[in-house]
C-alpha cells in the first residue's frame, strides 16, 4: 500500500515535469470544446444538458488516452529503469497499480478541468445535475478502462509509438464492438451467443447507458471488471517481458 502510494506520486509528478501534461490538457479541453459547440450543436439544440459534450468522449479518448498510457512501461523498458524499479522492494502488483492510478488521476484532473461546461449549462438553464455527475463518473470509468488496456499493451514493447498504435486499435475495437462495423462482420456466420457476447463488450453501449441517465450497476461493474482484468494482464505481461 505504501509503495503503491510512493509510485503513484512519482508517476503523477513525472507527467508534470515534461510538457506532456500541459499539451495534453490544452488539447483535451480545446478539442472537447470544439466538438461540443461546433459538431454537437450545443446551443442550437436548445436543451440544458451536456449530452453533446459527453457523446464525444469515447472518440476523444480513443486518440488521447493511448498517448497517456504508452509511456507507462515502454519508457521504463527502453531506458532500462525497469531493472532498477523492479529490484526495489515492491511487488509487481503495487508497481502496476501505482502506475495505473497515476495515469487515471491525471485523466481525472483533465476531466475536472472541463467544469466550465457544467457552469455554462447551469447558467443557461436548469439541467439535471444528477445525470451530469453520473456522466462524469461514467466518463472517468471509461477513461480508466482505456488506460488499463493501454498500460498492459505498453508493457509489451520498448517502443512508445507501437504502444500507442496497438492501444488505439484495441480501444477502437472495444469501443465499436456493439456497432455494425464489428457485428456486420460476424452476423453472416457467427452463432447468436458469440454475437451477443461481442456486443456486450462495447464501451459505447455501456457508456451511452450511463450518459442517458443514472449509473446502472451493470455498466459500472463492466468498466471496473475491464480495468481489473487488464491490470491483471499488465502484471503478467511485465513479469514475462521485463527482461527482454
Amino acid at each position: 500500500m505504501h509503495s503503491t502510494w510512493v509510485i503513484f506520486r512519482r508517476e503523477l509528478a513525472s507527467y508534470f515535469i515534461t510538457p506532456l501534461a500541459y499539451v495534453f490538457i490544452v488539447i483535451f479541453l480545446a478539442t472537447a470544446g470544439a466538438l461540443t459547440f461546433f459538431v454537437g450543436n450545443f446551443f442550437d439544440r436548445g436543451q440544458a444538458d451536456l449530452q453533446p459534450f459527453f457523446n464525444f468522449h469515447p472518440w476523444l479518448y480513443l486518440v488521447l488516452i493511448p498517448a497517456l498510457a504508452m509511456r507507462l512501461w515502454a519508457e521504463e523498458r527502453k531506458s532500462g529503469t525497469i531493472e532498477l524499479f523492479l529490484t526495489l522492494p515492491v511487488s509487481i502488483g503495487a508497481a502496476v497499480l501505482g502506475k495505473f492510478l497515476a495515469a487515471w488521476a491525471f485523466a481525472a484532473i483533465a476531466l475536472t478541468l472541463t467544469f466550465p461546461f457544467w457552469i455554462t449549462v447551469n447558467v443557461l438553464g436548469h439541467p439535471d445535475n444528477g445525470v451530469i455527475l453520473a456522466s462524469y463518473v461514467g466518463s472517468l470509468l471509461m477513461a480508466g478502462a482505456f488506460l488499463s488496456i493501454g498500460a498492459a499493451l505498453s508493457a509489451l514493447t520498448k517502443n512508445q509509438v507501437i504502444a500507442f498504435v496497438i492501444t488505439a486499435a484495441a480501444c477502437f475495437i472495444f469501443t465499436v464492438s456493439g456497432s455494425q462495423i464489428v457485428l456486420g462482420f460476424l452476423t453472416p456466420w457467427a452463432p447468436t451467443g458469440l454475437i451477443d457476447t461481442v456486443a456486450s463488450f462495447s464501451f459505447l453501449t455501456h457508456f451511452n447507458a450511463i450518459v442517458r441517465g443514472v449509473i446502472e450497476v451493470p455498466d459500472a461493474v463492466f468498466f471496473v471488471s475491464v480495468i481489473a482484468l487488464f491490470l491483471y494482464a499488465n502484471a503478467a505481461i511485465v513479469e514475462l517481458k521485463k527482461a527482454d
Binding site: 512519482r10 513525472s14 515535469i17 531506458s79 532500462g80 529503469t81 531493472e83 532498477l84 529490484t87
Partner: peptide, 15 residues
C-alpha cells in the same frame, strides 16, 4: 537487504 547498481546505472532521466 540489497543495494543494486544495474549495468549502465539507469535512473529516471527527467528527475
Amino acid at each position: 537487504r540489497i543495494g543494486y547498481l544495474p549495468e549502465g546505472a539507469p535512473a529516471y532521466p527527467d528527475m
